[in-house]
Write a protein that binds this DNA or RNA. Structure first.
Lengths: 142, 142
DNA sequence: GTTCTATTATCAGGCAACTGATATAGTATA
DNA sequence: TATACTATATCAGTTGCCTGATAATAGAAC
């Protein structure tokens, strides 16, 4: 990643700081997850499926605060990679139930270890109430 | 934007909080800038050009912490929209100097007013040292 | 003077987010 | 019962980010 030649004046805003932190976090997670063939958003989906097996596309989208279309395209990719499997609900004709495969479960376990390291680095640099404060900011902006 | 049906356990991490705050910030900025035909990243580019007229593609990319390719595609769009203009440097054959047009200057002034409102909302919900702390986190993760 | 390196610009392809549109299944209501 | 509404899934197109690759320019080293 390139680094700026000088400090930018208008970059004093809180909005800029939030963006920078998220960008750095995302890049580091992607680098670490790359060897598993996973991206940061894909890791999040696997986490959700681990916590709630059989969740539908719509349910997963709500959880991740993204649109159903966005989640749909991620699920297609994860299915092609063999990490999840989808099957129509027995009662509800339209719903597609989604589950981790064994390979998915495996990959998730390995990914947890990668991600934990990044979380620790971030926590050590942050104030103790940082997470709580940021969720408050997110709520205020919603 | 959808909202989750329940609270997610694994969502206690700092990484998740950073992502949520950035996502909410980005969505609000996009909504406000939409009437000007601008996105949040495009607004950032215009800000940089205002602070440093005649900057090159590579220079702008370093400033925004993105790759030259990413900046390139944004500049092409802004040029098509008539907000910036590019011309080859007189001495250095390869460099394309970029400047705000009058329309770009105009749009930027209007955008500043939109964005300020969002910044105030975020600051009111955040702790006083939030921006400084987040830049520290970004640095630690880089 | 040629080669090597650094910088710059750009093309092509991929992922993840969005909006808009379409189709279907289930539920509520006039 | 017919109609409308809600929820779900999925297609297509756009943006912003990435990596990889290509090409041109400027300056340094031999």
């Amino acid at each position: 990643m390139p680094s700026p030649d000088t400090v930018f004046d208008a970059h004093q805003s809180l909005g800029y700081a939030i963006k920078r932190a998220q960008q750095a976090l995302r890049l580091r997670m992607d680098r670490q997850l790359k060897e598993l063939g996973l991206t940061a958003p894909q890791y999040n989906v696997l986490c959700s499926l681990d916590a709630e097996p059989g969740a539908s596309n719509a349910r997963l989208a709500r959880r991740a605060f993204v649109t159903p279309q966005t989640m749909q395209s991620m699920l297609v990719k994860l299915e092609r990679a063999g990490l999840i499997e989808r099957s129509p609900d027995a009662e509800h004709g339209r719903i597609q139930r989604t589950q981790l495969t064994e390979a998915g479960q495996d990959t998730l376990t390995k990914a947890h270890r990668c991600v934990h390291e990044t979380e620790v680095i971030a926590r050590n640099a942050a104030s103790p109430d940082a997470a709580e404060m940021l969720l408050r900011v997110a709520e205020a902006l919603s």
